[in-house]
Amino acid sequence: MNTNYNNNIYPLNQLRSIMSAATPPGGQRTLQKRRQAQNAKEKQLKQTPASTRQAGHGGSSNSILKVYTDEANGLRVDPLVVLFLAVGFIFSVVALHVVAKVTGKIF
């Protein structure tokens, strides 16, 4: 974006020379520009980190797979609550078995 904008404002004398010479498309200059653009792109690619750890915020390392590093928006729960609810969930399944056995049918 930026470079385009800059390129459109030529100094007056240069503009004149462009008008008179009417350089054909392609050629050295475009090539150079293309190369520059590609370099810039590569540089940007290098700068955007590929993973959370590369961005400097922990996360997966070479031999560790780690998914959760940040606290995202959502239904916040305390870890202890999770542990208790997990046990509760498992016991409810056991209870389901017992109910099924007592009533003698699977719902």
Binding site: S60, I64, L65, K66, V67, Y68, T69, E71, V77, P79, V82, L83, L85, A86, F89, I90, V93
Partner: peptide
């Protein structure tokens, strides 16, 4: 049951991941 158990597994691993345990819950 199965999706609930999946959620339980996800949250258990998340607890470990988030710093209540060591590094990686999955592993």
């Amino acid at each position: 049951q199965l999706v609930g158990a999946g959620l339980v597994a996800i949250l258990l691993s998340e607890i470990i991941d988030k710093g209540f345990g060591f590094a990686s819950g999955n592993m």
